[in-house]
């Protein structure tokens, strides 16, 4: 996993609640067998009209936000399907941070395991950031994981993150390597504690 330490970039907002993973990446793009190359399909049905041309009304097609790497959005982002293609497509498109007032559980975990940082902030602050991002000059933010601070446009807000997850992101540690340090405990469990079943 690519470590995440600090990121500075331009922010873009999609100010809707409950954006599900079917919107982030529609199902027709889940048939491939690799992890990369999903960026071009991100928000496909919102980004492109049925004839395949970009929808000028969708914010990611606004040249002003072309280089954005921080996405600000509404509550319960990433709900629905467990498809890890959702964080893969966001990362591949160029996003490194998602700021929202809340995330769906599976999406949240999937993001952390890929070095995409989900930052939960209180709703009024998210609303303020959304407003700032739509101003003429736009919004540039810095997200510092070490200090757990989002800053920019005169604001500096602290965010919470589980210490273990923070450590994993900072080091880019592979969970499997970490777990295999407890190989002996797994074997002991298998010897002593397995329930009654015969598959």
């Amino acid at each position: 996993m690519t470590p995440f330490v600090k990121h500075t970039g331009r922010a873009v907002a999609i100010g809707l609640a409950n954006i599900d993973t079917d919107q982030i990446i529609p199902k027709q793009f889940l048939k491939r067998t690799d992890r990369s190359g999903y960026g071009e399909f991100l928000f496909f049905n919102w980004r492109f009209l049925p004839d395949g041309s970009p929808d000028p009304g969708f914010v990611l097609n606004d040249p002003k936000y072309a280089t954005s790497s921080i996405l600000i959005t509404g509550a319960n982002f990433g709900c629905g399907s467990s498809r890890e293609h959702a964080p893969w497509s966001l990362l591949d498109y160029g996003f490194r941070v998602i700021i929202a007032s809340g995330f769906a559980d599976i999406f949240f975990d999937n993001s952390l395991k890929n070095g995409l940082l989900p930052v939960s902030l209180p709703e009024p602050i998210v609303d303020e950031l959304i407003k700032l991002s739509t101003s003429d000059e736009g919004l540039k933010l810095s997200v510092d994981l070490e200090d757990q601070i989002v800053s920019g446009a005169g604001l500096a807000v602290r965010f919470e993150i589980d210490p273990f997850r923070k450590e994993s992101l900072l080091s880019g540690m592979d969970d499997i390597d970490f777990t295999l340090r407890h190989e002996a405990a797994i074997s002991t469990f298998e010897r002593d504690s397995m329930p009654i079943y015969r598959f």
Binding site: S82, E84, I106, D109, N110, K113, D175
Partner: peptide, 8 residues
């Protein structure tokens, strides 16, 4: 679970 967890 996600695919990284499937691998795990």
């Amino acid at each position: 679970i996600g695919t990284t967890e499937v691998e795990h």
